[in-house]
Amino acid sequence: MSETKSTIQTESNPDRPVSTTTGETEEEVRSEWREYAFDGEPKLSVENLDVYYGDDHALRDVSIDIPEESVTALIGPSGCGKSTFLRCLNRMNDRIKSARVDGSVEVDGEEIYQDGTNLVELRKRVGMVFQNPNPFPKSIRDNVSYGPRKHGDIDTGVLAGLLGRSNEEREAELVERSLKQAALWDEVDDRLDDNAMGLSGGQQQRLCIARCLAVDPEVILMDEPASALDPIATAKIEDLIDELAQEYTVVIVTHNMQQAARISDQTAVFLTGGNLVEYGETDQVFENPESQRVEDYITGKFG
């Protein structure tokens, strides 16, 4: 994935607009801003993104470009807005009534916050994996083929069968491919018709990843996908993310800084109050952070 990557320009930008509601600490934080640049078009481009939950200002003026076919980690203490940011990228925040989003998010140069955005198409292209494994109470096969079936890509219904249009073979292929991609095939290939609720937590989470892959997304958003899992299951998920980055653009929220350091190509650090404090190549952020507060956070002085 290094073809798309490039030099890191660091540049202090004290003139960056500062929201009027913020206090001193924020200006101090802002002064540490630096840009991260890379060759090629960004897959996701976010500009001046603000999110409010009612009166609560959850994200403040976030701008960030995310390159394709790479892993981007979002780290920061609880309540810093990293999950909120993630949910903006496929407009899952629309599902929260009190949420209001200002600013611009572009996927492949297309603005997704505008009238007429096709949410179905957007979420097919930008898939999501949640913190707690949430397979449907259906069979493993039905879980994986759920998305394509609902989109009409696969039809195995009675009517389709009668009309000779049933594509059970395509379904079988798709299920096998998705489960193999999610490194789950070998564990479940003999019990695809069993209920997914009978799988272990780690298997359920990989099934959720397979379910997400089955609709053939370009970007995969992961919200702390391993935080509910034991170390062995976590290691499997991490290996899987590494694999996925060959083909997909992965954005992952994590609380675990070692995990971020292990798996990501670039890291964005959010600190309290919904500010993006630092964004850059992972090694750079972890070894030589610009901001004192980021260094304190990474070295465990707070957070």
Binding site: M92, L119, F130, N134, F136, G147, K150, R211
Partner: peptide, 8 residues
């Protein structure tokens, strides 16, 4: 949520 995130 899971279903919505799949674009259903």
């Amino acid at each position: 949520d899971a279903s919505a995130a799949l674009g259903v």
